[in-house]
Design a protein around this nucleic acid. Structure first.
Lengths: 114, 114
DNA sequence: CAAGCCAACTAGGTTAACTATGTTGGCAAC
DNA sequence: GTTGCCAACATAGTTAACCTAGTTGGCTTG
C-alpha cells in the first residue's frame, strides 16, 4: 500500500498496525502477521516493515519474541498516571540492571536458580 | 563505543545522546554532531547512527532539518519529557528483561565467553 | 515408540548502497 | 558588486544482503 502521500512508508505501516491494535482487530496476546507477510501485504520491503514493527516495539505496544512472533501487549497502554509508572519503571530498571550485571559479570549462569 | 553488553548498539548510542541532551551537554537549540561524526565517535556504522537519531526524533527529543542538522528541541515540555523518558524506560525494561531471562535460564551470554 | 537431528520459519541487529532533497559557501561570469 | 551555478555536506527514506538466535514440526535413527 504505502500511498504516495508525503508520509514515509514506515510511518504509514506503523499507523496502520497501531490502528488495528487500537481497534481490537488484532487482540492483545495475539501475534501480528510475520514480517514477511506484512511486507507482502503492504507491498513494502522487509526493511521498512522491520522499521515499523520496531517503532511499535519501542512504544511498548507490542513485544517481540524471537522465533515466535510479535505479540500485542496484554496490559493496556497506561494513559493517565504517567508519573507512577515512571517511578515503577525506574525501580524496575535499577533492579534489573543490578541483577543483570551480576550475572553477566562472570557469575556462573548455571548457578542461577530457577 | 558500543560496549559488548547485550544491549544493541543503536540503543546504546540513543541512550548516550539522550543523556547528553538531558544533562545539557548538548543544549536546546543546538545541533547534534552530524551522523558521519557520530558514526566515527561511536565507532559504529552510519546505519546504526541513523537508527539512533531516528529514535530520538520519534521521541520528540530532537527535530531534524534536512540539509542543516538535527537540533535539540527548544520547547521540551515537561510532560513530553516525562513521556520520552517513559518510552525509553519501557524499552530498557523490555531489553533488560529478555537478557535476564535468557541468563537465568542457564544460557551464557555471548560476550562472556572466555 | 522415543530421541535427536534438521530444515523451515520467526524476530532482531548490522552494514552498505542508492536516491531524494535541502543548505551553504565559493567561484566564475557578467 | 551582484547573480547564478555548482560542489560539498546535511538529513531522510528505501532496499538488499548477511548474520545471529529462538521455535517448531517432521523425519530419521536407534
Amino acid at each position: 500500500m504505502v500511498k504516495k502521500t508525503g508520509r514515509p512508508g514506515y510511518l504509514q505501516i506503523a499507523d496502520e498496525l497501531r490502528e488495528q491494535i487500537r481497534s481490537g482487530s488484532i487482540a492483545p496476546g495475539e501475534p501480528l502477521p510475520s514480517t514477511a507477510q506484512l511486507a507482502e501485504t503492504f507491498g513494502a520491503s522487509l526493511s521498512v516493515v522491520k522499521m515499523s514493527v520496531g517503532l511499535l516495539r519501542n512504544e511498548g505496544l507490542v513485544v517481540g519474541q524471537q522465533g515466535k512472533g510479535v505479540f500485542v501487549r496484554e496490559d493496556a497502554p497506561p494513559a493517565d498516571d504517567v508519573r507512577a509508572e515512571l517511578t515503577a519503571l525506574r525501580a524496575a530498571v535499577a533492579d534489573l540492571t543490578s541483577r543483570l550485571e551480576r550475572l553477566e559479570r562472570g557469575a556462573s549462569p548455571r548457578s542461577a536458580k530457577s
